[in-house]
Design a protein around this nucleic acid. Structure first.
Lengths: 221, 221
DNA sequence: CGTAAAATCACTGTTTTCAGGGATGCTGTT
DNA sequence: AACAGCATCCCTGAAAACAGTGATTTTACG
């Protein structure tokens, strides 16, 4: 339970994590004249976001998903583990089912697209701060149509193992099974097994579709 | 001095074209306090940028490459055809050789990444306004290393024919040569020839790399 | 400690891709 | 008329991918 005393007069301390500095600067400039919201820091990758939150109090992290060093998903997971009261507002340019559900599964309380306007951004921050969940309009639609289409199938085989990921990337750059075997110091047979599992997990019937689906699900790119 | 006031027309009239409204707002906020630069308008796609430039005088267009309706390349081409004195500053998050060279070939006088800071952005705008060309530091590096690696080959085979494009897309979604032949009502041999030419043009050694490279060059996706 | 998931390896046989030639007709341009 | 580019078609042989099974070892976790 929260205290009976609401701290409405207090500023919401916001940390922006995005690898595009221009975007950070823009957001900061955009939020300066919003009363009740204060951008207290910025981070160019997940690791920096973690470091910052260790050092200073933060209410909400606006978290980009695609970042170098440590991406937004991993950063969110770790952040929420150590800072229970922290809120994370997922931010991405991709209105993609996998993106959104990954972020929400990880514990983010909100998800907005980069084409969101100032108004909705502020609304999202306020909603999260008061304990709610915010999804942009387009995002909600995507999630809904996604649920409609999916008769509960094909949910199990979502994540790839470490090894599968490595094989996938190697396939994508054009290596043959034999070459991959040599690169990873394993048998050709093993690579074929991984390839087989990849085809199944990504519902592809050959390498071409495999790479294509991997791009669509942002497993590579 | 001729007049007590310098011509305020010294202001650089900037139009921002980007499909992410949040980014536009951010940029605008970021440039408001820069003397000599004035953001006079915004466009969410290439078509809007064209329309705006027809209606009002613009010095520089900050042009995102990936936009719906009409992308930055096409918009730049058309803009420069009708407005000779206009400058275009290419903007993208991709530090990719093909992106950069496409944009420059189209006639853009500058190219910066979305992780550019305010300082460099202003510098870029001023450089372009005074007739120069501006490339960000990372961008220059990419271009240089690209030239180093490329002993002048592989420039000719840039564009795909209509048929090749169709075959490429069909390959990407997982169809086999035989299936594509049936879909396009042509012989299997013909499809194989197209596939062969695609592999050559995209410098790939198999379908996996083909799809991968096609994504990188934005031929599909 | 048991179990499940991941990673490893193996074999067989069919299908597909890939490399390498060569050939024709139809465009539009010079 | 000559030329380049595109689309179409054909053939062969080697290499790789794919389908279908089965099995062992390692690792992670409750």
């Amino acid at each position: 339970m929260e205290t009976s005393f609401k701290k409405t007069a207090d500023n919401i301390n916001v940390l922006i994590a995005d690898d595009h500095r221009m975007f950070i600067d823009g957001l900061k400039a955009m939020l300066t004249d919003i009363p009740g919201i204060k951008v207290v820091g910025e981070a160019l990758n997940g690791q920096e976001a973690l470091d910052y939150c260790e050092a200073r109090p933060v209410d909400i992290v606006i978290m980009d998903i695609n970042m170098p060093i440590m991406d937004g998903l991993e950063a969110t997971k770790r952040l929420l583990k150590s800072h229970k009261s922290l809120k994370v507002l997922g931010l991405s340019m991709h209105n993609d089912r996998h993106y959104i559900s990954d972020m929400l599964k990880t514990g983010a309380q909100g998800y907005i697209l980069k084409n969101t306007g100032k108004k909705d951004l502020v609304l999202a921050l306020q909603t999260l701060y008061s304990g709610g969940t915010y999804l942009g309009e387009e995002v909600s639609k995507t999630l809904l149509t996604s649920f409609m289409k999916n008769p509960s199938r094909m949910q199990v085989n979502e994540k790839l193992s470490q090894r599968e990921q490595e094989v996938l990337e190697s396939i994508a750059v054009g290596h043959t099974t034999q070459e991959i075997a040599e690169i990873l110091f394993i048998s050709k047979n093993t690579v074929e097994t991984h390839r087989k599992n990849l085809l199944y997990k990504l519902q592809a019937k050959n390498t071409a579709e495999l790479v294509n689906n991997a791009y669509k699900r942002r497993l590579i790119g």
